[in-house]
Amino acid sequence: MSALPTATLPTVLAAASAVGLQHYIALAALLFAIGFVGVLIRRNTLVVYMSLELMLNAAILATVAFTRYNGTVEGNVFVFFIITVAAAEVAVGLAIIVALFRKRHSVDVGDLATLNN
């Protein structure tokens, strides 16, 4: 039993070294797609908001992977700014969601259907 981790470690490392840019890009695209679909179909504002964060994180992951692959550093600086902007976004967004909850006692998108054509 105790020999198991040492036995699998090289295998894990070998597998990890085979992970290339395309894997990261595929993962980023997948995260982005999950976030986008979540924004479209989820009904709870907070869950929608989490999906939005997922989209931003997909952008961050893709940028970091590209930075590593390109060998430049600009992308990493960009990522720091995206993270900062995302933090500000959460502050503004949650403020509005809390204000909405105080008025309506609900954060469900379905309760927000008074404006329609």
Partner: peptide, 14 residues
């Protein structure tokens, strides 16, 4: 932002 990350990846400049 996701689009910009692709453009950055292609051109390696911001």
């Amino acid at each position: 932002l996701f689009g910009l990350s692709y453009l950055y990846g292609l051109t390696s400049t911001t």
